[in-house]
Amino acid sequence: MNWTSTDTWIVVVGILCAVACALPGCFLVLRKMSMMGDAISHAVLPGLAIAFIITGTRASVPMFIGAAAAGVLTAVFTQWISKLGNVDRGAAMGIVFTTLFAVGLLLIRQAADNVDIDPDCVLHGSIEFTPLDTVAIGNLFIPRAAIVNGSVLLLNLAIIIVLFKELKLSAFDPDLADTLGFSSRFLHYLLMTMVAVTTVAAFESVGSIIVIAMLIVPPATALLLTHRMVPMLVIATATAALSAIIGHLSAIIVPTWFGQTSSTSTSGMIAFAAGLLFALAWLFSPLEGIVTRRLRRSCDLQDPELSTN
């Protein structure tokens, strides 16, 4: 294996993205809104298109603002449709993001057809190329993606540390939050904004598959391993980081097993590694893993005192 500084940067960017997603993802999973990340990552397309039409450039700041605004709108529209139309929230989410995605496609076709902004390149950034786009800080060349996703990670971490009590309360019992004077609506949209900003920052640099996977899989894995909030956030963070490391390593190593010389998609491998870690937790979690429970039961049966009961 030929490990270069490029590989190190890929892993660093991967870890930053994965953890930045996993933190707000914990609250999404607890609120049973896991697919919000998927919805937002599609629904930002019209935001990108409109930002492009207005500014005429592909500069990242207006694009970012447009995409994040569209992401937050997804959450707003979903809420409206499910409240006013008495529609199930999952269905409302589906209606909103497919419609917005379609609008985005149409806008891009009509207004920006001759520019290089096809949905593929918007939705599937590629983590392998992030070390090429660097920013010089002093005499250090740091990938732009590392700075962007690192900032988002710090922002998410800061919000969760400062508003941990409020986010926990509004996720567990929004009615109580409202009666105590903590607006559950404000906290809901704060979380949605965090998810939108994180999603946009991450998929612009590393592709949507990592984003969607990291919003859901590490938090779900953590929930299998603990029944407490703070450990959940810590385990989700660790799982996300581990997925990034394992993912990139196996993207390099696994193809050689099959006699191939080039490495495979790191994004795909990171998401796959997360799925694998989830499966391990599901099987062997000391709390309620499938295998653990089976073992415990067979131990109980062998224990004469218990089996006579």
């Binding site: 607890l30 049973k32 508003l163 009590k165 409020e166 926990k168 309360l169 996720a171 567990f172 019992d173 009615d175 109580l176 009666t179 105590l180 004077g181 903590f182 929930l223 603990t226 029944h227 407490r228 909030m229 959940m232």
Partner: peptide
């Protein structure tokens, strides 16, 4: 306010003590 028991998700990863402590949140403020 004591809501109906089914109004919340009891699988939520918090302890009994955590839930009871939520009763102090208004006094604590943001």
């Amino acid at each position: 306010y004591v809501p109906q028991r089914e109004s919340v998700d009891w699988d939520f990863p918090v302890t009994a003590l955590d839930v009871v402590a939520m009763g102090s949140y208004r006094r604590l403020g943001w």
